[in-house]
Design a protein around this nucleic acid. Sequence first.
DNA 1: GCCAACGTTGGC
DNA 2: GCCAACGTTGGC
Length: 157
Amino acid sequence: MNPSFWLFKSEPETYSIDDLRNAPDQTTCWEGVRNYQARNLLRDKIQLGDRVLFYHSACAQPAVVGTAIVVREGYPDHHAWDTRHHYFDPKSDPGNPRWFMVDVQFESKFSRPVTLAEIRATKALAKMELLRKGSRLSIQPVRKTEFDRIVQIAERM
DNA sequence: GCCAACGTTGGC
DNA sequence: GCCAACGTTGGC
């Protein structure tokens, strides 16, 4: 199976590409997704070896800042059952988990961010979900051509 | 901080 | 099932 391609949003003040690079094994569980559409992707679609664009959102310079790779497929987000956890959700039942996550491993940090403005200005990227008006999906599919183009822009100093 | 867009909740 | 109210996201 060929890998699929995704874009994961994260607020850098919460979890940045540097946090991922500095994490043990440069790996983290992608916890805290509480949206059903994104949940379905995490649970059903995202596979081992899939490639991820790491996007910094809700910050001074929204941008794709690097890449990651999926190293564990969807499994229940157990934080939803921890009453003291920020991501606790009383409606998630361990017998029938409501929320899922995957594990991702750091792959690269771009030598420079590929900003939302640049993405918007690139014709070949015009169809990205990221650019859809009102789009807020924090886990979204990306075409291989789009993934490749963004990496290419990052390398084109 | 503002605000548009979206998702969820809950009364009816 | 409708829809108003509310909470969240995220660019600016």
